[in-house]
Computed example of a mutant assay.
Amino acid sequence: MIAGRVGQLSVKGFRSLRNVTLPLDHIAVYQGGNGTGKTNIYRALEFCRHAALGDLSLWLAKQGGLASCRWSGPTRTHEKARIAISVTVGDLRYHIEVGHPTPTTAAFLNEPLIKEEKIEARYSGRVKTLMKRRGPSVTISGLNGREQQWDGLLLPSETALSRLPAEVAATDVAGLRDTLLGWRFFHRFRVDTDSPLRRPAAAVTATKLDADGANLAAVFATLEHIRQDTTDLKSLVREAFDGAELIIPHPEEQAAFFIQWPDFPNRLFSQAELSDGTLQFLALCGALLSYHAPRLVVLNEPEASLHPDLMPALATLIANAAETTQIIVVTHSAELAGSLEQRTACPIRNVEKQNGETLISGLNSLGTFRGE
């Protein structure tokens, strides 16, 4: 039932996103200046993945805690002091609400707790609830409409989505969890002298890039020597860097890669020697062209450390990856947004902030854009 594509994201009370519903295209680009809150779109999707992973409360604590992550502007009397996020994946919709503990709750004083969870499915135009959770109580519904309670000693800080055993969860629920866990997020790779990108990697097959890029050399080696297809990768490197060649030796104990510049044909430059921008671009290549294409990749400011002249090559990289992967880009670069619009014909969504609230130009309260 799950096609894997993210169709819509609804967010209430999360940082500067007071109440917004976003339709997400196969390539979705959100462009805005610093401080407009565009990164909160990235974080809201990341929120959903951590709900599936089962460490949402810990992740929120690392983001500064519930008080820091909640909308801090004016609220109406009836509005609950909660973060509420919903995401639609194929025919399924996952909804979760997080709030503060009550005095009788089995939790620490300021620990973010799950108040409600729901998974709904749309079958033949009808909406059916597959899972519903209020407090510690979880109700599971099968396709035949039969309901059962799941008594799994669910703590208020744990998501039902992450805890439901495969034999209890409906097939679609388990599939949704797997889909969310497969999402990939990349935010500003480290390129300093101690960055893991600058070191060789263990010589093991790597089908996806780690979040910190530490296995980049292994990802490239897997493409070169296991799949034996680096045509797109090497073509992009030549386009981006005026004919430079990406050299990927067959790994022994460690995997490594080198750049051969046209001006220095007899010298190979190692990972440790590459400029910040070159390394950043190569890491993005690893993220988007890995052996196994993720269903969704979310990029936050991928233009970091890159010269504006690299924006057309970066747009080509994203467009090539979008042939197999849904991609959401959050950027402050008008150059990158313009190149993506030209290369893919995707609409650019402009992000702005008014009175502390992040707004998307042209977006109405129903979650559609005017004129579309």
Rank of each mutant, 00 (worst) to 15 (best):
G7Q: 03
G7L: 06
G13K: 08
R15F: 07
L22Y: 02
D25H: 14
A28D: 06
A28Q: 08
G37T: 14
G37D: 04
R43M: 14
A44Q: 05
F47Q: 09
R49M: 11
S57L: 04
G64Q: 02
C69N: 06
W71Y: 15
W71P: 00
G73A: 04
V87N: 05
P103I: 06
T104I: 11
A107M: 06
E111R: 00
P112K: 04
I119K: 00
E120D: 12
L130I: 01
R133H: 01
G135A: 04
S137K: 13
S137C: 06
S141Q: 15
G152K: 01
L153K: 13
L161C: 11
L161Y: 02
V191K: 02
D194E: 13
S195V: 08
S195M: 07
A203H: 00
A206S: 14
G213V: 04
T222I: 10
D229H: 07
T231L: 12
E239G: 02
D242G: 07
L246K: 06
H250R: 13
A256K: 06
F257H: 04
F257G: 02
N266K: 10
T278M: 04
Q280E: 07
F281H: 03
L288C: 01
L299N: 02
E301P: 03
A313M: 07
T316Y: 02
L317W: 09
I318V: 14
T324S: 14
V330K: 01
T331L: 06
G338L: 05
I348G: 03
R349Q: 15
E357G: 10
T358W: 00
I360E: 12
S365E: 15
L366W: 12
L366R: 14
F369D: 08
R370H: 15
